[in-house]
């Protein structure tokens, strides 16, 4: 099996919000990428922004100030 790693997942209500987050993070060089929402996570939109858990605190404020409101934030081994 693939070795698992801890990530923070931000989920969204709509694809548009997920795309806005990807655009925002890309512009600010915030690490991560969009992934399909894993089955154990309940989310409206099928896309989640995934970033390494250890890097999340560095960018947490920037993400919060982006104006894009995630539906949920989840810590998960993937």
């Amino acid at each position: 099996m693939r070795e698992k790693r801890e990530y923070i997942l931000l989920t969204f209500q709509t694809t548009s919000e997920a795309m806005a987050m990807e655009r925002f993070c890309g512009k600010r060089e915030i690490p991560g990428r969009l992934i399909p929402v894993p089955g154990e996570v309940s989310a409206g939109c099928g896309l989640a922004w995934r970033m390494p858990a250890e890097e999340f605190p560095v960018y947490e404020t920037a993400i919060r100030d982006s104006g894009i409101l995630p539906e949920n934030r989840v810590r998960l081994l993937l």
Partner: peptide, 21 residues
């Protein structure tokens, strides 16, 4: 197909549609 997954072709469609919006 936009909004239907996270592989590169579908993300490309999602990005394009978001950009058009």
């Amino acid at each position: 197909n936009s909004g239907r997954g996270a592989h590169e072709p579908t993300l490309r469609a999602s990005r394009l549609i978001y950009g058009a919006r």
